[in-house]
């Protein structure tokens, strides 16, 4: 059972695993793997808890209901699955600042958290604008050969590559 305690698997083995997993989610649950809708549902649940009915009546939350569903549980499961994998291999560690970031921008936790928060806002806003993320469009949509998903996935990487080079090439 060495493979369970290995820190890293070949990316091709992981990709085959995710491909087969997507067969099963379609065959058993009739659903594609996706993640970003769950954060919108969470935002809706928080808004509804604070402001009540008025928030639940927003057109977006009529479309994306603020409730726990299959995909929301999938995201919860992902936290658990990654923790199991990391604990089995001894790769689990509580870390505030990733090493690559620290090597270029220093170990200040506050700066990293603010930048992560800003990045998160763009991700949440952009994924809901595009109607999916690296999972929903990037994996599940592209394998269905959807035009919307191929455009989205290509733009995720164009935007990501340009900004990564700006951050590490110009600022860093």
């Amino acid at each position: 059972m060495n493979w369970l305690t290995a820190t890293r698997w070949s990316p091709y083995a992981v990709g085959i695993g995710i491909g087969v997993l997507s067969w099963l989610t379609w065959l058993i649950s009739s659903k594609p793997i996706g993640c970003s809708t769950s954060y919108a549902r969470t935002a809706g649940m928080i808004e509804t808890a604070i402001r009540g009915k008025q928030a639940a009546e927003k057109p977006y939350y009529q479309k994306v209901k603020p409730q726990v569903d299959w995909q929301w549980m999938l995201v919860v499961g992902m936290v658990i699955g990654a923790a199991i994998s990391a604990l089995l291999s001894g790769d689990f560690a509580l870390i505030w600042v990733p090493s690559r970031w620290a090597a270029t921008f220093g170990t200040n936790v506050g700066i990293r958290l603010i930048v992560a928060l800003i990045g998160g806002v763009f991700l949440g806003f952009g994924s809901r604008w595009a109607g999916g993320c690296t999972s929903g469009h990037g994996i599940s949509g592209t394998m269905q050969l959807a035009v919307s998903s191929w455009i989205s996935a290509i733009c995720f990487f164009i935007g990501g590559v340009v900004v990564a080079f700006l951050i590490y090439g110009l600022i860093g």
């Binding site: 992560a116 990045g119 949440g124 952009g126 733009c155």
Partner: peptide
């Protein structure tokens, strides 16, 4: 998809994770 995708890309690089 193009505009949303590019906005997502900004966040992808700034945060370094995706959803």
């Amino acid at each position: 998809n193009a505009i949303g995708g590019l906005l997502f890309g900004v966040g992808f690089a700034v945060l370094g994770y995706c959803p």
